[in-house]
């Protein structure tokens, strides 16, 4: 049987969900695993729902499109849950038994009792991480929120190594022309302008990844 990890990332446009997914998949590939990644978004607008899907497997992946049965769900913004800015409702729809949910929030969200019970029945684990705060503190910019989420993922499940992530971040920002969408390219320029040098950008982002991996905390259901 193939060893598979299916990861669904839900966030808002401009948060770097798609970039995060690309970095993760590149890292997985770097380690010799099979991986595909694809985004789903509506109009290319900041704060509109944006999702990205990463499939990591020991064997060739045929399946395409959105991940309906994720092992891990990453929520980049509380509004995904509280305002339903998400392609799947409820946000944990399709989560596999024993799966993980990682939420970016400074404090536990007001998730209904019913939902919490269901998560409990699924033997799901819920984690919180102050990703945006860590991004500001360590990376000096909220634009690194996606890197903090990636760090939190590594803190919860070792799907890829830190070294592989570092390679992927270098690959992404280190000059090679990366393409996601026109709007993402515009945000890239903003990102690059925040850091004097690309090397500094990579280093700071890696610091964010490591810090977030330590600060992600499990929430007792």
């Amino acid at each position: 049987m193939a060893e598979k990890t299916w990861i669904r990332m839900s966030g808002l446009g401009g948060q770097g969900v798609i970039t995060c997914a690309h970095i993760l998949a590149t890292a997985a590939n770097q380690e010799g695993k099979e991986s595909t990644v694809n985004p789903f978004f509506g109009a290319e607008k900041r704060l509109a729902p944006a999702e990205s899907y990463v499939r990591i497997s020991s064997e060739v992946i045929h399946e395409r499109g959105e991940i309906l049965k994720p092992d891990i769900i990453m929520i980049f913004h509380p509004h995904v849950i509280t305002l339903g800015k998400c392609y799947t409702m409820p946000f944990y729809e399709g989560l596999q038994p024993g799966g993980n949910v990682i939420i970016n929030s400074d404090q536990p969200l007001a998730i209904s009792k019913e939902d919490l019970e269901k998560l409990n029945q699924m033997q799901a684990k819920v984690f919180y991480v102050s990703a945006t705060q860590i991004a500001s503190e360590v990376g000096g910019t909220e634009l690194s929120t996606n890197m903090a989420m990636l760090g939190a993922l590594l803190g919860v499940a070792k799907v890829v190594s830190f070294d592989a992530v570092k390679f992927a971040v270098q690959d992404r920002f280190g000059g090679k022309n990366f393409v996601a969408s026109g709007s993402t390219a515009a945000l890239d320029d903003v990102m690059k302008s925040k850091f004097a040098k690309v090397t500094q950008l990579i280093e700071k982002n890696m610091n964010v990844v490591e810090e977030a991996s330590k600060r992600v905390e499990e929430y007792q259901l």
Binding site: T26, N29, E34, T36, V37, N38, P39, F40, R64, G65
Partner: peptide, 12 residues
Amino acid sequence: MDGFFVTHTRDK
């Protein structure tokens, strides 16, 4: 080619 499924999927 199928939009998004193929155009936006990163693959080998």
